[in-house]
């Protein structure tokens, strides 16, 4: 039983954890709720709390803490919090996975429906699983991969990274719970006070002011989605080239679930100092971030071409 508890405490989103909650009739209590709240707060600080005790009751509590955190999130239904929480919990799971037994890893892979084949020293993953859970950064693009008969060759680190992404997606899907206890509700309220104020839009981001790829990134950003490195970089360079003030860019970037002011500030200042140019549309396509078929070769030409040449009424879809 202990082994099972340990697994469930590490991976409280798993079916096994769910079963343990059902069997043990674990219910929210004030201690668990408080710790659940603390777990969400730690996610806001970009930390992932881990546990050290291995006693059955403590491990059981670990599962309960996660469940309470989910209830609080479900009640608040705030995408910023949910995304922050899912990023941090997926990272936490990854750090356990990295040291876990093949058997435990296999159980999770199976739970997430990973279609795999092993072939001597390489791991082969079916392209449907690969594409579903790819972190989206350039080194994961299919174009540079060995793919044969439906299977992509990856290493163990990449496999765990894909699993982390699968976990993140699962945790980010928070079902709405109808009956919520007053304690959960109170915990949620206390949390809202600590939320960073979502930036009112200071910048001129009227629809049509930016090319569709940038618009799409801004929409994702406002939904607090975890954009990959290339996407953030393009957005940052674009905003810099549009002479957006550093504070305004930082306010926008605060929406990222893994935002760290010091790092973001350094990166934006560095990009500014280096004088990076906004990449061409071809490069953006290469990153898989092009979403339209507009008559420009670089996002910076957008306004010039569309407004000056064609006037404002350009419908790209037709």
């Amino acid at each position: 039983m202990e082994k099972s508890y340990l697994f469930a405490a590490r991976y409280p989103f798993s079916t096994r954890a769910k079963r343990i909650i059902e069997i043990s009739k674990l219910a929210p209590n004030s201690q668990l709720i408080e710790k659940g709240l603390e777990r969400i707060k730690s996610a806001l600080r970009n930390e992932s709390l881990k546990f050290s005790s291995v006693s059955d009751s403590d491990l059981l509590n670990e599962i309960g803490i996660y469940a309470c955190a989910r209830m609080i999130l479900s009640n608040l239904n705030n995408s910023y919090l949910i995304n922050k929480f899912s990023v941090s919990q997926a990272k936490r799971a990854y750090s356990y996975l990295n040291q876990d037994s093949d058997e435990n890893i296999a159980e999770l892979l199976d739970e997430f429906g990973f279609k795999l084949k092993s072939n001597r020293d390489e791991i082969l993953i079916h392209f449907s699983t690969y594409l579903k859970y790819t972190p989206g950064s350039i080194e994961y693009r299919l174009i540079g991969r060995n793919i044969a008969k439906g299977y992509v060759s990856i290493n163990k680190h990449e496999l765990l990274r894909l699993l982390q992404e699968a976990i993140r997606i699962k945790i980010s899907q928070v079902p709405k719970i109808k009956k919520i206890s007053p304690e959960i509700e109170a915990a949620g309220k206390s949390l809202v006070i600590e939320l960073p104020k979502i930036t009112p839009e200071k910048l001129s981001f009227k629809k049509g002011d930016n090319p569709p790829c940038i618009e799409a990134l801004l929409i994702d950003l406002k939904k607090h989605l975890n954009l990959n490195h290339q996407a953030r970089w393009i957005l940052a360079v674009y905003l810099i080239k549009k002479n957006t003030a550093l504070e305004d860019i930082l306010e926008l970037f605060m929406n990222f679930p893994d935002y760290k002011e010091k790092i973001a500030k350094y990166q934006i200042e560095h990009a500014k100092k280096q004088g990076y140019m906004v990449p061409s549309c071809a490069t953006i396509r290469g990153y898989g971030l092009c979403v339209s078929n507009c008559p420009v070769k670089n996002p910076m030409q957008w306004k010039k071409v569309l407004y000056e040449k064609y006037g404002k009424k350009v419908d790209l879809d037709e």
Binding site: L131, R141, L142, I143, G144, R285, Y287, G288
Partner: peptide, 15 residues
Amino acid sequence: NERREIVDYIRGVGL
């Protein structure tokens, strides 16, 4: 997104 990645692969985008 997954379908787009497949088209990009076939079209050699980023190759």
